[in-house]
């Protein structure tokens, strides 16, 4: 079991390495992709500087907490899109029979499929997250907690993308639903949770699990809370197990296709 996990990890690392090798062929494009993503994210901070010049507190968050919110949201998005890029096009993979090549390999189908390509611009998001963390105040504890929650958050948003993509096993083409769901996760992640009230707040902390990916991490990094940390970790494990169950349930309905396919 442990050996199988090690071997799967080895293949994933190789996929990332080869993906980077491909991107680095065009050096200028590689550097531009990463640096423009950092600049793009940085532009949003300007609007928050303007807002905080007028108000001291937005939704219970100080400016420093908003920086942390942006840092964790960017880093979570970055890790998910860099390592698990294909989870965001799982619907296309399923409906166009692209799972075939992963099904004939002695590896976990889901992990192999979603890690089969990288999004290089997402490196910019990861870097941006750590730069903003450094601006908001860097200590070893904050760095370690930030890294932990970037990874758990990335796993949770990847789980959501996989669950939405897996709908294609039952309903055929469901890429629009998946895109909308994934956008919801990203759009709400960069606003303080205090500005959402009532049903919206309940939804954000449950069905759209932004509590796990951004809000709880910000609270914990600001004031450490062991109980909340364990809730984040255990919930991530439960959601991931649930995702695997749903995907493999759907896989029994996979119908493949005879379309001409090549790996680019």
């Amino acid at each position: 079991m442990l050996q199988a996990v090690k071997n799967q990890f080895n293949v994933t690392v190789k996929t990332i390495k080869y993906g980077l090798m491909r991107e680095m062929i065009n050096k200028t494009s590689f550097i531009m992709n990463v640096s423009f993503m950092i600049l793009n994210n940085a532009s949003f901070i300007i609007q928050w500087i303007v807002i905080y010049s007028l108000k001291d507190n937005v939704g219970g968050y100080s400016f420093n907490q908003v920086l942390l919110l942006w840092a964790i949201a960017a880093s979570t998005y970055g890790f998910s899109h860099f390592i698990f890029k294909k989870s965001y096009s799982l619907s296309d993979i399923i409906t166009n029979g692209k799972l075939d090549s992963f099904l004939v390999q002695p590896k976990n189908v889901l992990i192999s499929a979603i890690t089969s390509d990288i999004e290089v611009s997402a490196l910019g998001d990861i870097l941006y997250g750590y730069i903003v963390l450094a601006i908001s105040g860097l200590t070893l504890t904050r760095f370690l907690l930030f890294t932990l929650f970037s990874i758990t958050g990335a796993i949770v948003i990847t789980d959501i993308a996989v669950l939405l993509g897996s709908l294609s096993f039952w309903f055929g083409k469901s890429d629009m639903i998946a895109d909308t769901g994934n956008s919801l996760m990203t759009n709400f992640a960069t606003y303080p949770d205090g500005i959402f009230k009532g049903l919206a707040r309940i939804l954000l902390l449950t069905i759209i699990p932004l509590g796990l990916t951004t809000y709880f991490p910000v609270w914990i990094i600001t004031t450490f809370n062991l109980k909340l940390t364990l809730i984040v970790i255990i919930s991530t494990i439960i959601i991931t197990l649930f995702t695997f169950i749903i995907f493999y349930k759907g896989l029994r309905r996979y119908s493949s296709t005879n379309l001409m396919i090549s790996k680019i």
Partner: peptide, 12 residues
Amino acid sequence: VFGQKEQLWMHL
């Protein structure tokens, strides 16, 4: 070997 589905990475 599926004639209609290439399994090789094109850029490698």
